[in-house]
């Protein structure tokens, strides 16, 4: 883990710019930076579906492929599942994510 990049979270309250450690997950980045709307109750074990984000504004080839487990969990997320839905605990921050925007749904419960 070395270096940071800037990523953004678009929340119902507005846009948040944060420094993200390369190698951390997008969920961990949101929690560390006190971004509201990412609950992450299970701490990144991919079992609570409370770190749901929409990745409409992220080039999809920059994101790790979805496991079948994540796919299953997303079906049960509270906010509407869209084609760009991901669990942010399963997304690693890489240098290429500089200046990308993750959209946080209205509710995680």
């Amino acid at each position: 883990m070395s270096g940071t990049v800037t990523i953004f979270f678009e929340t119902p309250q507005g846009l948040r710019e944060v420094g993200a450690k390369i190698g951390a997950s997008v969920m961990e980045t949101a929690v560390m930076n006190n971004v509201s709307g990412i609950e992450a109750e299970c701490g990144g074990a991919c079992i609570c579906a409370t770190c749901h984000v929409y990745t409409d504004k992220v080039p999809q080839e920059l994101l790790q492929p979805m496991s079948s487990e994540e796919d299953d969990m997303l079906d049960m997320a509270t906010a509407e599942r869209r084609s760009t839905s991901r669990l942010s605990c399963q997304l690693r921050v890489t240098a290429e994510l500089e200046n990308t925007v993750f959209i946080i749904p209205e509710s995680q419960f």
């Binding site: 951390a24 006190n34 701490g43």
Partner: peptide, 14 residues
């Protein structure tokens, strides 16, 4: 695999 920063319940500023 994870360090302390990655398992905090909330960020330091929370």
């Amino acid at each position: 695999e994870k360090d302390l920063d990655q398992i905090l319940l909330r960020g330091p500023a929370f």
